[in-house]
């Protein structure tokens, strides 16, 4: 059994949340640069320039890209040959978030209860998903997601007869209703199949796929491209202010489902979609 001390987990999570909040992933930067080169509306170009400059300022000055430094989702793939020592895993993750948000001057945006709504003051608790896997690895992804985009996600339990056309209609409906709220240009994460919560998890997982990387299933890759073209033709544009750039990517993930189910979830990632992976 390989031993991993909780202090190392906390330390890695603290560094990861600071990194995620200050350094925009390279694939998103490249996609924004590409969008700037294609954009035909002057005011949208100006916004894209500000967004790219913002990423530069954030990384150079170590300040948050966006003031909404999010509620942190942490996905953990824990090898079954790993023995966590010195404490418990979820406590260590939350301690890392507490430390990172304090040290990184990141905003604390978590309230204790959906009705009482008292700020917990340290951005915990995180949303933690743990999967036990083979081997002795410890793979963690941190995903601090702001509420502007999170609030625009939707889920539908379609009838199987709705098929691919129904899924496409739902994707377009969610993007249209979201308009400028999720801070376009957005990344559209789509989860199809499984059950209710699996579809939502798949949609989030889809946001983790790098922009430009298509689905490994050619028929889905074609749908992703078709959706991207149709979404960009809607004219919502950067920040909802019009123009050619509404989405940078549409990523679709699937899973086996029940004979009577066709769940579909759409999660929207803002132009500041922050994600960092750590291996311990």
């Amino acid at each position: 059994m390989r031993q991993v001390h909780v202090e190392n987990i906390s330390k890695a999570i603290a560094e990861a949340v600071i990194e995620a909040n200050t350094n925009l992933p390279g694939d998103i930067k490249d996609a924004l640069q590409g969008a700037l080169e294609r954009e035909s509306l002057a005011s949208a170009s100006n916004c894209l320039q500000i967004i790219l400059e913002n990423a530069q300022i954030a990384v150079c000055e170590k300040v948050a890209l966006c003031q909404d430094t999010g509620l942190v989702a942490v996905n953990i793939e824990l090898g079954q040959e790993v023995h966590i020592v010195g404490g418990e895993l979820e406590g260590a993750v939350n301690q890392g978030i507490r430390d990172g948000y304090q040290r990184g001057y990141l905003r604390k945006s978590v309230v204790n209860d959906p009705f009482d709504r008292i700020n917990t003051g340290d951005n915990t608790p995180a949303i933690i998903h743990i999967h036990l896997v083979a081997g002795d690895g410890l793979h963690m992804t941190v995903f601090p997601k702001g509420a502007g985009s999170e609030n625009m996600g939707q889920l539908a339990m379609l009838k199987p007869s709705a098929g691919m056309e129904g899924v496409k209609k739902f994707i377009l409906k969610v993007v249209r209703e979201a308009g400028g709220n999720p801070c376009p240009p957005i990344i559209v994460g789509v989860g199809v199949g499984g059950n209710m919560e699996k579809a939502a998890l798949l949609a989030k997982q889809a946001l983790f796929r790098e922009v430009g990387q298509k689905s490994s299933r050619p028929e889905l890759a074609a749908i992703e491209e078709e959706m991207l073209v149709q979404i960009n033709a809607m004219g919502i544009g950067v920040q909802g202010l019009g123009g050619d750039t509404t989405a940078l990517a549409v990523n679709i993930e699937t899973y086996p489902t029940h004979i009577a189910c066709l769940p579909v979830a759409v999660s929207l990632g803002c132009h500041c979609t922050r994600r960092v992976t750590v291996d311990l």
């Binding site: 967004i51 913002n54 890209l65 905003r107 700020n119 502007g148 801070c183 202010l241 803002c270 500041c272």
Partner: peptide, 27 residues
């Protein structure tokens, strides 16, 4: 409308900031 998600950029355009009320509300 200001550019959402450009918080680092916009912070550079803020020359002074003072709390006026409700400090207990944090952010």
């Amino acid at each position: 409308a200001a550019v959402g998600g450009a918080g680092a950029y916009l912070a550079q355009r803020i020359l002074a900031a003072d709390i006026v009320a409700y400090p207990e509300l944090g952010p």
